[in-house]
Structure formats: structure tokens, C-alpha cells
Design a protein around this nucleic acid. Structure first.
Lengths: 151, 151
DNA sequence: ATGATTGCAAAGAATTTGCAGCGAG
DNA sequence: CTCGCTGCAAATTCTTTGCAATCAT
């Protein structure tokens, strides 16, 4: 974990930004909750536990900065809020999500399922793909099992 | 076009909703601007041209209703606003988008590129896919041509 | 000193809600 | 008459901004 902080620190420095205590606290919260998809407010509340003097605006500004640096990806699952998702180490592309319409759980898929599809898009549409967003909506394993029980 | 309105009318009636003049005007705007990705405000302004007495809240309520009925899909390209996109006739799944990061243009892809990927997801993750959202970010044909010119 | 960064409070934008009036069946 | 639907204005929610104070170099 420390080495990921170091890496982010370098990324900031390379663009002459600093890793201030507030920014570091924010990054740590993101690292510690890597599986979740936190909203700015969520991050704010968690950061506040460690650094109570931080302001919500700073969290927003930090998340924006991290988005610019592609340390995090800003996503939107359709509720009104933006959520922030750390990029996996070395990931060139954004990972995919499985959103369960029953229970609302969100699972992540690391593997890039789109390599072929992207080739197809570049070939057929002349569109040079830089990144993608892919989310599946459906029913997760758990909820499928539950509805079988009901029968 | 009239028959698409009829169809939507039936869909509404089947859930005991009515196709009021305001709702009809809203649907017509969506049909007439099928290629665009209008925000609620956009729709409001266009509807207002035909039916100046309509209120923004009604547009929101109508779009919400149409989303529920899966007549439209609510999407979000990362700017702060929700956009509404008519489902193509008979389309079971949401279509895909190519968003150009240079000029902001949005192209639509009708073909379902994900059939195989969905099989894979169901098999490998036990997730029963109902629908998907797929957006590619990259550089469109035009902007590619332009940057070649610059060189 | 200089310029980046912060916290606070205020502003802003998008969307939702409360409510009285209207309108179709 | 009843009940869904509407328009308006107010309220909410999420996010951004202005600004003076603070911090690091």
C-alpha cells in the first residue's frame, strides 16, 4: 500500500502538484475501500474520521485532480451521484462492473473483455478507442439463488 | 412515426397511464431528435416551442415515466446532466456510444457487439445479464483527420 | 515572498416535491 | 365526483466557486 501512495505522489509531482496531508488522507481512504464505489460524500465522511478539519470542497477538488491524473475513474451508476473508483495497478483501461438490479450490489471485473470489440470498433467505425465504460445490469449469483429458493 | 406514438400510447395504457398532450409533445420531441442525446432541459426547451405552457417538472416526470417503461434510456456521459435516449424499435438492449474526447460528438452503434461477452460473463461470473451500458471514449474519424492535417 | 492549497460559506446547477387547480371519464 | 396529471414555486441535493488565511519552498 505504501508503494502505491509513493507512486501516486510521483504522479502528482510530475505535474507539479503536491501530496498534501489532505490529499494523502483522501488517497488512503480510497485505497482502504478499493472494493467499494464511494461517492464524494462517502469519501468525505471517511476522511473526516482521520482528519476532521478537512472540508468537503477539498475532497471534491482532490477527487477531480485524481480523476485528471487517471488515478481514479469517476463513474455514475444512475443514482444522482458520482462515484470514484481507483484504477487497478497498471491498468490501462477502466474495469467493468456488474450491477445487480435486485440488491444493488456492484461486482468488478478485472479482465478486459473488450479487446476484440475494440478492434472491431476501430475497423468498422474508424473510431480510435482510448478508453471504455462497460456496465452490465442484471441479477447476481446471490439473488438468483434466492429466487430459486422462493419457488 | 405515428405508429411509434401509438405503440407508446398502448404501453402507457397497459400500465394505466395516459398519453396526455404534454406527454405526447415530449415523446414527439424525442422522436424528432432521435439522433441527439437531449438533456431534460433540452427537451423542455424544444417542447416549449410547441406547447409553451408546459412546465419543466412535467418534462422531468414524463422522462422518468418513459424511463420506467423502457421507452427511453437515461444516460450520463460524465458531464453533470442526465440525457435521454429513445430505444430503437424492438431493441432489447441499449445501444452503444462512441464519445469523442476531442470534439464531444456522440455516435451511436446499433449492432450488439456484446453477445459473446455476455455469454462469457454469465458463464464465468454467474451473473444473469439483463442489459448493458457500453461507451467508448476516443477520437472520432473527423478529429483524427484534422490532427493529420495539422502535422 | 510567491504561488499552491485549504476551509468555510455562499453560489450554482440539476432535479424533486408540495400543493392547489384542472380535466377526462 | 374522483383521481390522475399539471404548473408553479419552493425545497433538496450534489457540486463548484470566491476568498481570505495558511503552508511550503
Amino acid at each position: 500500500m505504501e508503494h502505491r501512495i509513493e507512486k501516486i505522489k510521483k504522479q502528482l509531482h510530475s505535474q507539479s502538484y503536491k501530496l498534501t496531508p489532505q490529499r494523502e488522507a483522501t488517497v488512503r481512504v480510497l485505497l482502504e475501500n478499493e472494493e467499494d464505489h464511494l461517492s464524494a460524500e462517502d469519501v468525505y465522511l471517511l476522511v473526516k474520521e482521520k482528519a476532521p478539519e478537512i472540508g468537503l470542497a477539498t475532497v471534491y477538488r482532490t477527487l477531480e485532480l485524481l480523476t485528471e491524473l487517471k488515478v481514479v475513474d469517476k463513474i455514475n451508476f444512475g443514482d444522482g451521484v458520482s462515484r470514484y473508483d481507483l484504477r487497478k495497478e497498471g491498468a490501462e483501461h477502466f474495469h467493468h462492473h456488474l450491477v445487480c438490479v435486485e440488491c444493488g450490489s456492484v461486482e468488478e471485473i478485472e479482465e478486459d473483455l473488450l479487446t476484440e470489440v475494440e478492434v472491431q470498433v476501430e475497423r468498422d467505425f474508424g473510431f480510435q478507442v482510448k478508453d471504455h465504460r462497460l456496465t452490465f445490469h442484471g441479477i447476481c449469483r446471490n439473488c438468483q439463488a434466492q429466487s430459486e429458493d422462493d419457488e
